[in-house]
Design a protein around this nucleic acid. Sequence first.
DNA 1: CAACTTACTTACTAATTAGTCAGTCCTTGC
DNA 2: GCAAGGACTGACTAATTAGTAAGTAAGTTG
Lengths: 196, 196
Amino acid sequence: MTAPTDTREKILASADRLLRSYGFNGFSYQDIARPLGIRNAAVHYHFSTKADLAVAVIENYRQLLHKRTAAFMAGHGDPVEQLEGFIAFSTAECCTESTMCPVGALASDFYSLPEDIRVAGQRLLDELLAWMTRVCAVGREQGRMRFEGEPTAKAEQIVAALQGARQLARFRGAPAMQAVATQIRRDLGLGPRRDE
Amino acid sequence: MTAPTDTREKILASADRLLRSYGFNGFSYQDIARPLGIRNAAVHYHFSTKADLAVAVIENYRQLLHKRTAAFMAGHGDPVEQLEGFIAFSTAECCTESTMCPVGALASDFYSLPEDIRVAGQRLLDELLAWMTRVCAVGREQGRMRFEGEPTAKAEQIVAALQGARQLARFRGAPAMQAVATQIRRDLGLGPRRDE
DNA sequence: CAACTTACTTACTAATTAGTCAGTCCTTGC
DNA sequence: GCAAGGACTGACTAATTAGTAAGTAAGTTG
């Protein structure tokens, strides 16, 4: 019961695409309402402010990520596969949908953002980095990955490089993303995947 | 003669800070005019459209970069020093001014940007990557840097990681930037600098 | 049947946006 | 002393923005 309405889901899906394509200041309620054939006020009915909408998008993304990482955080799964899965996921989003991760999409707007959006973004990023840190730590423990320094620093570097690559890809196209992914693998001593 | 007016310079400086702090859609002519005690139309007098203003900011940054890299591109200078200089420059901008590089600031707005801004951004990025590729290539030739794969891929990874780190730093503060910089050095086999 | 709730629409507001245009003051050259 | 141009101002416009308030049609529940 209280099944979330179709309209609400459509608004959320549309906001997700728009926010992650154009940034927080780059889309309007009109952009959401018009293609769905509904009115501006209908969007406000489901998400009273634009900030609420953005928070819902981020939270949605965080839960998606959580589903994909929960098993590994609980001690199951292969670290190399985890990393490759994330690279594949990022690359697909970047090259197929031309979207960024919410963190990347909101970074340039950050200082003009209301507090609750910032907090939601921080939470997403915290979880992502915690998972990536574990991937690196376990990967090295098992002798599958090679790197120097703390796993936490390596994790931050990998996440930063993939975020940054999605920026570069906007200006230079998909190969930039591929090149960075390949270099990350090489640095870790992983064999290059079939791509590239 | 035809000395650029003080006002024009002030507008440019203000636009630079605003664009790189809040993104293209995150500031207005008002934000520039008001603090300078001039009118909206005065900004339009010097830069007829917002796109022109953005292009001027990017071009300005590109020339700044060019000044700092020209000597090395002509065959002079030490690659490790070049890299360290860039890291220090990025870190200072990020942590002191809280600004991003124009490429990073414009990435989320990219698909809503007029063509000439995109082209200006591409040009800046092309030059930056060409320089970083040379830094990596010469660094390895001289036995000062250690990495596998093409210098061009390593350069893209380093630039991407530093861009991405500036995004992370917005959400997590300056240490994220430091951690990524340190890991880049470690991966290259450089000694860790005095910072961190 | 009546009271209520859900999911909207119509119609609006107040603010802000980039951009325009005619006029004005000041300097420089002749 | 006067014309020309550079550097603006004042007063606008048309569009768009997030957000609101009141009303309504279709269920749902007691």
